[in-house]
Design a binder for these strands. Structure first.
Length: 475
RNA sequence: GGCCCCGUCGUCCAGUGGUCUAGGACGCCGGCCUUUCAAGCCGGAAACGCCAGUUCGAACCUGGUCGGGGCUGCCA
């Protein structure tokens, strides 16, 4: 069987990590099986739907390295892959279902239904029994699917095993709203049938809606897809991940300095594993090893500590040139302008040292801005801690004069000169070097000192140390 | 309330009746290295929710219980 899977993100907001994780698993499954991966847009919520979010969805998925064979932005045999363009089709299906007796119009008021539900709850009966309607149908209102009573719906979930839902526990659910717009259940099922979707891989929150979708597909005369329900992603509080958990949009991670490979890898180990101890792996390795059987059943907490660590691993694993390329936009942003060729060369010189230290691309800029401004920002806490000690001014004056005669002005000779300073003055290395560090970078945290001095150049280095001395004497 | 899902270190994952005094990773703690910060290296604390049953033997099977979660909408 040729596998055809899809994801159907809604365009009511920025795409978030839960959806992205579902997308990733669908993609992995499709690529593993040589199947087709489809991206369709679920925009049936006309109130909140916003096409401005389309770009976010498309670019987010691409950024992660996912590609799709049919769907939004790439097209295919099924039109635009936006559900809003197929409302006529869904309406027709709803009407056909009414004609065949599988659905009916319902004009009862929401208030009345609310009362029925409450009564059902109090009496601990199946709510479906109350929502159903046995009297002759009206001719307007919503269209509800008529759940056949008595039968149980059973199916085999590829991750959870055998499932069984009593039909009497299911409401006669709305498939077409009174404004003629289909509900999620209808649109999604019609599309899955029309597009020939073979496997529906989605979050567990849809598990209890699956009987509805199976019933719907059957009423349309189609074979339901194979279902696989992924464990949910939780926030730190153990609840389904949502906006209130902070950064849950993919964009937040992209803008936060994460590498797509790291996010990809991290999302892949949430609810799935290769089966051995490997936790860091490539997309190719994941594709080769992927199977729904290996997907775990229990929910996973989205733990950004581990993502952060993993991002650092990926940054350090980058080839030097690649790191420089990836870091460029972040350096520009931090410096506030583009760099010229000489400056980029300077950055390239010190980049490996920064690469070793960064867990986030956002950390790169602040580490190197001192090289590209005449007046680096001074971190007051660093200054207070390092510069307000006895003898600092003397050390700085001495350092400046030694640096003036260092030749060539390179890492090794600089190190020799400054170590001599410490030794001759009988002070520890840290005591001698920290003031110089703060003087030239503005902070007690920086790339290694001698390399930083070399990159800065003699003239600017000496000038900055003298400026620091002046600042010290003026209080 | 009803229906459904889930239950191994704080977190992610391994484990499918003996090889488990339960393994790896993040995080945490301690140490080494060291010019700061990282990285790296070494070491440590840390879990099978509970109770029955099946079995010679159970983290793995069964039942119950407790706990967590999802759904219960003219949201998806």
């Amino acid at each position: 069987m040729t596998v055809r899977v899809r994801i159907a993100p809604s365009d009511t907001g920025s795409i978030h990590v839960g959806n992205v994780r579902s997308a990733l698993f669908n993609w992995l499954f499709a690529r593993n099986r040589g199947g087709t991966f489809i991206v369709r847009i679920d925009d049936t919520d006309v109130e909140r739907s916003d096409t401005a979010n389309l770009e976010d969805i498309v670019s987010g998925l691409r950024w992660l390295g996912l590609d799709w064979d049919e769907g939004i932005d790439v097209g295919g045999p099924h039109g635009t892959y936006k559900q809003s363009d197929r409302f006529e089709r869904y309406r027709q299906v709803a009407l056909d279902l009414v004609a065949s007796g599988d659905a009916y119009f319902d004009d009862r008021e929401p208030d009345e239904l609310e009362q029925l539900r409450n009564r059902a709850q109090q009496e601990a009966k199946h709510p479906g029994t109350y929502i159903r309607r046995l009297d002759p149908p009206a001719t307007d209102g919503v269209i509800r699917f008529a759940v056949p009573s008595g039968d149980a719906v059973t199916f085999s979930d590829s991750v959870r095993g055998e499932m069984r839902f009593e039909a009497d526990s299911q409401d006669d659910f709305v498939i077409l709203r009174s404004n003629g717009v289909p509900t999620y259940h209808l649109a999604s099922t019609v599309d899955d049938v029309d597009y020939g979707i073979t496997h529906v891989i989605r979050g567990e929150d849809l598990l209890s809606s699956t009987p509805k979708h199976i019933l719907l597909a059957r009423a349309m005369g189609a074979d339901p897809a194979i279902y696989a329900h992924l464990p949910l992603l939780f926030g730190p509080d153990g609840k389904k991940l949502s906006k209130r958990h902070g950064d849950t949009s993919l964009a937040a991670y992209r803008e936060g300095g994460y590498l797509p490979e790291a996010v990809f890898n991290f999302l892949a180990i949430l609810g799935w594993s290769l089966g051995d101890d490997r936790e860091i792996f490539t997309a190719e390795e994941a594709i080769a090893a992927f199977s729904l059987e290996r997907v775990s059943k229990n929910p996973a907490v989205f733990d950004t500590d581990k993502l952060l660590w993993m991002n650092g691993e990926y940054i350090r694993a980058l080839a030097g040139e690649t790191f420089v390329d990836r870091a460029r936009p972040w350096v520009r942003e931090a410096v506030g302008r583009d760099l010229d060729e000489t400056e980029w060369a300077t950055f390239g010189q010190i980049a490996p040292l920064v690469q070793d230290r960064a867990k986030l691309l956002t950390e790169v800029g602040p580490q190197v801005t001192f090289l590209f401004t005449d007046d680096p920002l001074i971190d007051q806490a660093s200054w207070d801690k390092v510069m307000r000690k006895e003898g600092v001014a003397e050390i700085l004056v001495d350092a400046a004069s030694r640096l003036e005669s260092v030749n060539p002005f390179e890492t090794e000779s600089i190190e020799t000169a400054l170590r001599a300073l410490a030794e001759e003055r009988g002070i520890g290395a840290g005591k001698a070097f920290q003031p110089v560090r703060v003087a030239i970078t503005g902070s007690s945290v920086s790339p290694p000192l001698f390399e930083s001095l070399a990159a800065l150049g003699r003239e600017r280095a000496v000038q900055r140390i003298r400026n620091a001395v002046e600042r010290l004497s003026s209080g």
